[in-house]
Computed example of a mutant assay.
Amino acid sequence: MIDEVLKVFKKIDAKDFRILTGIETGMKHFEWVPIEELNKYTKMPLDKLEYRLRKLVRDKLVVRTTQPYEGYQIYFEGYDALALNSFVKRRSISAIGDEVGVGKESVILEAIRQPELAIGKPSPVIIKFHREGRTSFKQIKRVRDHIGEREHFSWIYAARLAAQREYEIMTKVYPQVSIPKPLDQNRHAIVMEIAKGSLLSKTKLLNAEWYLDEILRQVKITYSLGIIHADLSEYNIFVSEDGVQLIDWPQYITPAHPHADEILERDVSNVLVHFNRKYGIKRELEEVIREIKSGASLIGATEEEPSRDEASRDEASRDEASRDEAIIEGTGKRGEGLNERISEENKDKENDNKEEAFGEERN
């Protein structure tokens, strides 16, 4: 757990970080990094290396095996420590706070960032640690285009690549699209501004129609930039008095993806179902999709051609029928199943008393 990392972080010195980096580097080539390789990498006397490795094992930053040889792997906690150390050195953060969120594929930590040139006050930020691959490497490879086919695959590769991918797309769409400002990325972690407000799923809106229009406007701007979120729902949209912010971008695709239309429809359908179920607002899916696509090149920027890497991923995805079926399962033809989903979800009434109200009446 991340809190265990924070307990030992101050005790880790430069030589410990050298060992952790050696294991990280070695895992590109070995499932278990041999101690002989670590000895070569760190250039430490073997007895001192073994002593420090025992300490890192005890602190649950690395794990040791003796079969078929003595070797080591880095835990997520050890990888967290490496990323935190880099952020501190680069002054992306100056203090580390508490864990504020845990998801299926990420852990969120509070932090403080000093102002540039020491002008102004320190600002609160968050660090998002990607956790792709922690439970099942095979499942992550099946559902994520950007993993590709790798002879040697590890959770380090999955988590690091997901963070790189998310940070790159955030820097591309910010500030045209309303998202938390991305600040830095290292390994499997991203430093970004704190999202404003609260999750749409946990909020009771006083002017729901306005917020729905604003969410759809952000989807249209995103599409005009040649991007589809690909995982949009009430669980990754923040709402506040200022408007909305979209979060969680590692699964994004481009309109060149062979199933782009279905995935865009799924994103929009998730939003429409939520507002219909909770506020009784009805919109026709076909009309909304038509509006998102119409004149998209007039907003912010024209749609870009996919890069060579993106084109390769899209080509490879055509052969991954099972993955695509998992992504668009239940979508069917445009709009098909929307009414059934609304009817089914109406059975589950939400407890509005636990929700925070946002949004003044707008003209």
Rank of each mutant, 00 (worst) to 15 (best):
K278I: 14
Y252Q: 08
Q218N: 02
V125F: 07
P45S: 14
R150Q: 10
N276A: 15
G133R: 00
D242C: 11
R54H: 06
W155Q: 02
K121P: 07
E286D: 15
F9T: 03
Q67I: 12
K10Q: 11
A326Y: 12
S224E: 00
Y51Q: 07
G226N: 06
V143L: 08
I74D: 00
E110I: 05
D267W: 08
L232M: 05
T254H: 01
F137S: 05
K202A: 13
A158I: 05
E151F: 06
K202P: 03
E151V: 13
W32V: 05
S269T: 14
V63K: 00
F30R: 02
E291L: 11
S86H: 09
D16T: 04
Q176S: 12
K220D: 09
N207R: 10
G133V: 07
G332M: 05
L199T: 04
I169C: 14
V271L: 06
G335V: 02
A14N: 09
L84P: 04
P258R: 01
A158W: 05
W32N: 06
E50C: 13
L225Y: 01
T203Q: 04
L298T: 10
R160S: 14
D261L: 06
K48S: 12
E340M: 09
V88R: 10
I93V: 03
D145V: 09
I169L: 12
S154M: 02
A296Q: 05
D352W: 13
K40C: 13
R134K: 11
D3V: 09
P124Q: 13
D309R: 06
L232E: 01
E361I: 15
V239L: 08
E336F: 10
A260H: 00
R52P: 00
V100G: 10
E356L: 08
R144M: 10
D16Q: 13
M27F: 03
L49V: 04
S198W: 13
E214M: 07
E241V: 06
E360K: 15
H257I: 11
D80P: 02
L53E: 03
I227L: 12
K172H: 10
N39W: 14
E234S: 12
L20E: 00
N186I: 15
V239F: 09
L232K: 04
G197I: 05
P306G: 07
R313Q: 05
V244A: 02
R313V: 06
H274R: 13
T302C: 14
A162G: 09
V107Y: 01
D352E: 14
S123D: 13
D98L: 06
H146K: 10
P122L: 14
F129C: 05
L161H: 08
